[in-house]
Design a protein around this nucleic acid. Sequence first.
DNA 1: GCCATTAGACAGAATAACTGCCTATATCGG
DNA 2: CCGATATAGGCAGTTATTCTGTCTAATGGC
Lengths: 150, 150
Amino acid sequence: MTDNLPPPPSGDGQRLAQLFHLAYDRLRTRIYGQARDAGFADLRPAHSSLLRNIDPAGSRVVDLAERAGMTKQSMAYLTDSLAKLGYVAVGPDPDDGRAKRIVLTERGKAAVDTLARLSREADAELAITLGETEMMRLHTTMRQLVAVLD
Amino acid sequence: MTDNLPPPPSGDGQRLAQLFHLAYDRLRTRIYGQARDAGFADLRPAHSSLLRNIDPAGSRVVDLAERAGMTKQSMAYLTDSLAKLGYVAVGPDPDDGRAKRIVLTERGKAAVDTLARLSREADAELAITLGETEMMRLHTTMRQLVAVLD
DNA sequence: GCCATTAGACAGAATAACTGCCTATATCGG
DNA sequence: CCGATATAGGCAGTTATTCTGTCTAATGGC
């Protein structure tokens, strides 16, 4: 009995979710490894939730949390972490006495630039493997998928 | 000075890594939400590292850890967690006195089947959105990317 | 001025994975 | 058979990431 499990269900094997996870995991490992070699050894993947979303003129914690899709407590934790590491500075918001304004330091700006460059380079290398046409098609398809899954 | 940050670098916007992450996150949330509604409320996403890799005849902890790409301690933690929840049973390995054999219980088999079905259904719905041709192309492209990123 | 809303802080917990060290067993060369 | 080495897993402790719940303080409309 119970010998009718489907080990590889069709000729297919892996679901999209797992493929996306694998690809993301490898890209993340690669980019943060290169960032480490570029002198940003204290940056961790979670920090990108802030670094990806911060405004050049500075942002408030709630706005960063909103953009990153996480709670303000979690974003406050990341803010504190990056402030201790010297990537961001925290000051009062001139327009709202309750709020703080998170701004990138020079090191923070360098980190954002480096991460953006490494991400672009990774994409460029994959574009060479896939070909420009396929790469554009993949981008289009992925944006479509993310929109549908909203 | 330092006013030359590239806010949206090209007309492009998002890198592949982030798109993969977003898509994976939404799929995972969806599938585990449906699993919860299907009576598997105590399953957490991390458990899939074991459930995806366990052999129908049972597996050892080291093999599961190897396949999932994590340490044996982490896999032992998941094994213990799933054993307490009644999804797997742990017995001695008949061929190796050092080893234990992790086998799925009936509930564990039901969970594996359900998760596999939900994953297939999610893929099927996305295939409707994208069209069969585009879906197959996406699968091919993703496998190619994962292979290149090894 | 009062009060509902908002920004953030503080405390605690849950989840997920790690490193380091230890024991028991297995296996292989002599 | 024995000792060296490798392997399976256990135990203790730590780090990282994010959550809930509760609190204070400031804002802003009326």
